[in-house]
Design a protein around this nucleic acid. Structure first.
Lengths: 222, 222
DNA sequence: AATGCAGAAATTATCTATAATTTTGGATCG
DNA sequence: CGATCCAAAATTATAGATAATTTCTGCATT
């Protein structure tokens, strides 16, 4: 992964901050103070502000004019919303990608699935899962659609990490295998239908809050 | 239309530029020079750069690091892509909005349809059409989905204005009426199906290029 | 005539400084 | 004791200036 030495400073900052927000290192609702960030990266606040605009566009931060920018909050409603948007858009992408899928690509996707099944922590499972989806969708050749899906995946990952902060139980992903089987048989519609259901699978999990009470956490697990 | 006096300057600039790009006042591929824009708006270039980031996020501009930003180009492929994304997402939004639609809203939507049918120029037709879609979709209560659909509408409008720069023939929108009728009968699925087909209706039109040759122009007409 | 190089001009990216706004802490008053 | 208001501090927004990069232009060379 090229760390983009030719990237502008603003892009580099936005990538680092995006990673922190997604991983949960910065809490939802936390303020992002431009001077603090600027100091950390040894820059002025101007590129920091541009980085904030990028995060805003991705839906990872929200800004109120003259009141600063803070990490976007999210609730069960947004988890559902993202799941449904992903279902609609990934199905569309897969329908267009299917004719261009080679067995080489499908083999790679199978490898990604196996890697996910073997993962012993959320982070590597998420990475493998994202790789699977990207592999089978990328050949659709629709850049705008893929960019939108990427942003939704970032949001999904955030929900996931918020719920399964550390514990993770390995599980074999039957959906991924069913999708691959259907694609190998040239049955794009069946694959798309499974994918549509798959990404709407919302996992539930009780987590302990800081105050000691327990509440349910939700995340897209597909 | 609140011109947002409390908006930040960057937001104001981005709105004006977005309007120019959508209307075709600035050609696709044209460079956006920050100092020139800054001079025009009597500001420094810093808010201009932030405005550029916003346009980029909306897909109206593309930027290459250290080489500046230019108005995004588009081709038939992207017109189709946007049409399909709109179909997928607007159908989703309508399914969620349907239970919350009141007859008052549907009446307003019918007014918008009539206004569109009476329009004698592209600009006012587009405005009425957008109002119709927004009215029936907004009650879905999914802010992220609505924001994405808005961006797609902006892109659609751009395609439309590029093709039908001035001439426009009035026509009665049967699809809008069919959608409203289905919604009034509580048949959300039928309305959604019609909407899905409706926004994928791509108009074709021969236009004369600067060099005198004719080529086909395409636009989403729904 | 085409190609390549050098210097100039233009443009972008960043930094430092200033102005404006909001938040906060504390003192005063009801 | 609590609410309100004012002043100080913190933070954001913008401006003006500087450094670095790219693009342009003209001239020399093949």
């Amino acid at each position: 992964m090229a760390k983009g030495t030719d990237d502008t400073i603003a892009v580099r900052i936005s990538k680092v901050l995006a990673d922190r927000i997604i991983s949960g290192a910065i809490e939802p609702g936390a303020r992002l103070r431009q001077d603090h960030v600027a100091e950390e990266f040894n820059t002025s606040h101007v590129p920091v502000r541009e980085a904030f605009r990028r995060l805003e566009a991705q839906g990872l931060a929200v800004s109120e004019p003259r009141r600063g920018v803070r990490v976007a909050a999210f609730d069960l409603g947004e988890v559902k919303e993202v799941a449904e948007m992903r279902a609609a858009l990934e199905v569309l992408a897969l329908r267009h990608a299917a004719p261009h899928l080679t067995s080489a690509i499908l083999d790679q996707a199978e490898e990604a699935t196996k890697a996910g099944d073997k993962s012993r922590d959320v982070r590597s499972w998420e990475e493998a899962n994202r790789a699977f989806h990207r592999l089978i969708l990328a050949p659709c050749g629709m850049p705008r659609l893929l960019a939108t899906i990427d942003d939704l995946h970032a949001a999904s990952a955030r929900f996931l990490f918020a719920a399964w902060r550390s514990e993770w139980e390995t599980r074999t992903d039957q959906d991924h295998r069913a999708i691959l089987a259907a694609l190998r048989q040239g049955n794009a519609e069946s694959a798309a239908a499974t994918l549509g259901r798959h990404v709407q699978w919302i996992g539930r999990k009780p987590i302990r809050t800081a105050s000691g009470a327990t509440r349910e956490a939700f995340a897209i697990v597909g």
